[in-house]
Simulated assay, not measured.
Amino acid sequence: MGILNYTFDWSVLWRDPYGGMLVKGILTTLQLSLLAWLIALVLGLAVGLCRVLPLRFTRLVGGAYVQVFRNTPLLVQLFFWYFAAPLLLPKPAQAWLYDNVPNYAFWAGVVALGTYTASRVAEQFRAGLMAIPRDQYRAAYATGLTTVQVYRYVIAPFALRLILPPFTTEFLTCFKNSALAMTIGVMEVTHTAYYIDSFTWHGLETTTAASAVYLCIAACITAGMAFTEKRVRIPGMIVRR
């Protein structure tokens, strides 16, 4: 079929069964992104904290994690978690994994995307911690707090407010990177769009819909983070206008 003879049919976006498939793909993208971001946030904050603690061992561990995961392509990490990681387990564990974990490709994508993004979040959190004046650390210690209490009650809350803008960008990057999960068979919105195209030959409509989905969700994320930044901003610091 030549491009000049192409007939638009936007009904592929909602007629049965393609409409339901597209909605399911959108929900899968959201679930994958949110779960991966949760891993990235918790693990990234822990690794970033390890990078600045006055303990050589924790700094080495945190630095090694960042170097390995940040400097390896995400696509390679997806293939590792999906194809190679199960082979490192004992045979009974492999059998249990494949027999008892439904939709293993999805969970491999969550882990890969989460651990990869965590290495980037860790560096942003470390930068936020290092941006805090040393006098604030001394003032916190002067109150009698322990090192753990200083970071938990004083330094970490302050640093989190400083790095909210780059966190917004990182969340958007995590959300968009979820499209790579199609390479291991996850039926997220991009893979679903191509899958529908293989049956209908209306790839222009499906890819346009996928693009619109990404744009709308990204706009919602940006608006939500901008609202959060205004609510928790520190007086005198630069904030989003």
Rank of each mutant, 00 (worst) to 15 (best):
G62W: 06
L88K: 09
D197G: 10
H202T: 11
V47H: 02
A93F: 00
T58A: 09
G236Q: 07
W14Y: 15
E205A: 07
L172C: 12
A46Q: 13
L27S: 12
L88Q: 10
W96N: 04
T228K: 10
R134A: 04
L89D: 11
G48I: 01
V101F: 06
V42N: 09
A181C: 15
P235I: 14
E229M: 04
I132P: 05
L162E: 07
L162Y: 04
F8V: 13
Y195R: 13
L55N: 15
D197N: 15
V150W: 01
G44K: 00
E170T: 10
D99Y: 11
I196P: 06
L75P: 00
R70A: 13
A127D: 04
A112V: 06
F227A: 15
P54K: 07
R161V: 05
S211Q: 09
T7S: 14
N100I: 10
L53H: 02
T228N: 12
P86A: 03
A85E: 03
A181W: 05
T207V: 13
I3E: 07
F199S: 07
G63P: 05
G224I: 02
P86S: 03
P17F: 07
R161G: 10
E205I: 08
P133K: 06
G224A: 09
L89F: 09
G44E: 11
F80L: 07
L49E: 09
S11P: 04
T143V: 06
P165E: 06
L53T: 06
T206P: 00
T190L: 08
L162W: 01
G48R: 03
I238H: 14
G19H: 03
Y18N: 08
I163W: 14
S178E: 00
T29C: 03
F227G: 07
R59V: 05
G19K: 09
T146N: 08
N103P: 01
A105N: 11
K24T: 05
S198N: 04
